[in-house]
């Protein structure tokens, strides 16, 4: 099927089979491998991207169901994302870094909806992103730090 996607402000016109997940199309057709697939069944959050502003799991989203959508990934240029990337670096909020792109996109969605989240709100808002290295305390600090550095 014909598919029009805008990924990080770049327009893509693609021919995509209906059963292909958005994650696969982002990684393969658009060659943006920052988006990770760790479980492929919607349980870990590594593949989180923004589709029309919502943080969704791209492994459980059909690409063809996103026709005309605006997709943002970790490779996108964005002030809030940049602030979070700096905060994740400063707080050591990752170890292997495989879950980090998904963490960052969830954090973007969280701070867009709630620019000054409490600790409990950060923990709730980030709870769909597993980090097996156990960087959670630093992730919480990083999200709070990025929120605090908002202009």
């Amino acid at each position: 099927m014909q598919l029009r996607l805008t990924i990080n402000d770049q327009r893509h016109e693609l021919e995509v089979e209906p059963h292909r997940p958005l994650a696969d199309v982002i990684r393969t057709d658009a060659a943006l491998t920052g988006t990770k697939v760790a479980c492929g069944e919607g349980t870990c959050g590594s593949c989180t991207v923004l589709v029309d502003g919502r943080a969704v799991l791209s492994c459980l989203t059909l690409a063809v169901a996103c026709d005309g959508a605006d997709v943002r990934t970790v490779e996108g240029e964005d002030e809030l994302l940049g602030r979070l990337q700096a905060a994740f670096t400063a707080e050591d909020a990752f170890q292997c870094g495989f879950c980090t792109p998904g963490q960052l996109l969830s954090a973007v969605a969280l701070l867009r909806a709630n620019p000054r989240p409490s600790s409990a709100e950060i923990r709730a808002g980030m709870s769909g992103n597993l980090c097996r290295c156990g960087a959670y305390p630093a992730i919480e600090r990083a999200v709070a730090r990025a929120a605090g550095e908002a202009r």
Binding site: G45, V56, L60, G128
Partner: peptide
């Protein structure tokens, strides 16, 4: 329900 992303979807 489930996780934040699954609730968005």
């Amino acid at each position: 329900v489930a996780s934040p992303q699954l609730r968005e979807m």
